[in-house]
């Protein structure tokens, strides 16, 4: 590196740059927090949705599935499973989820296996509520198509 570029200049860029961009991140975060209620529709987070998220976490669903593209890539994306498997109809989706989770693990040799989680009907309904709420987050229209 050029001789006129000294260590103290490099140090100032580190401290100054790090500090400035951290402040910028805080500022953007505040702005995002003000903007998010319009996009996540938190007014629709009912007790059932919150309970559903808890079941989602307690059974480590993210260990195989992705949700809004994050998680593991071993099993299908579930951010839009409400549209894919329920056709956008809440009752259809809940019925589907209850029967689907009831028959796991599918007895097909060689197929990836989803464990049987022994959830009650109410718990599955709550899980469905959570996935329905999730599917309605304004997330810039991801995924590109229904297959997730």
């Amino acid at each position: 590196m050029a001789e006129q570029f000294t260590k103290s200049m490099a140090r100032n860029i580190y401290y100054g740059g790090g500090f400035f961009f951290f402040l910028l991140l805080i500022g953007l975060t505040v702005d995002t927090m003000l903007d998010l209620p319009k996009r996540d529709h938190r007014e629709n987070i009912t007790i059932a949705v919150a309970q559903g998220k808890k079941h989602w976490e307690d059974n480590n669903c993210i260990g195989c599935h992705s949700l809004l593209g994050e998680g593991a890539y071993f099993a299908p994306e579930l951010g839009n499973v409400f549209q894919r498997r329920g056709g956008g109809d809440e009752e259809t989706f809940k019925q589907f989820l209850i029967s689907w989770m009831g028959v796991q693990p599918l007895p097909i040799p060689g197929r990836r296996k989803m464990p049987q989680f022994h959830l009650s009907k109410q718990e599955i309904n709550e899980l469905a509520e959570f996935l329905i709420w999730t599917s309605r987050i304004n997330n810039n229209d991801w995924p590109p198509n229904i297959e997730g």
Binding site: M1, K7, A10, F21, F22, T32, N138, N139, N140, P143
Partner: peptide, 27 residues
């Protein structure tokens, strides 16, 4: 001197670079 340059650039690019995780999750 090199160390400062490397980590300065890491923070300058990486802090707001976090935005690449915010594309499709709601923000």
């Amino acid at each position: 001197k090199w160390l400062y340059v490397v980590i300065a650039l890491a923070l300058i690019s990486g802090l707001i670079g976090m935005g690449h995780h915010y594309y499709w999750i709601g923000p």
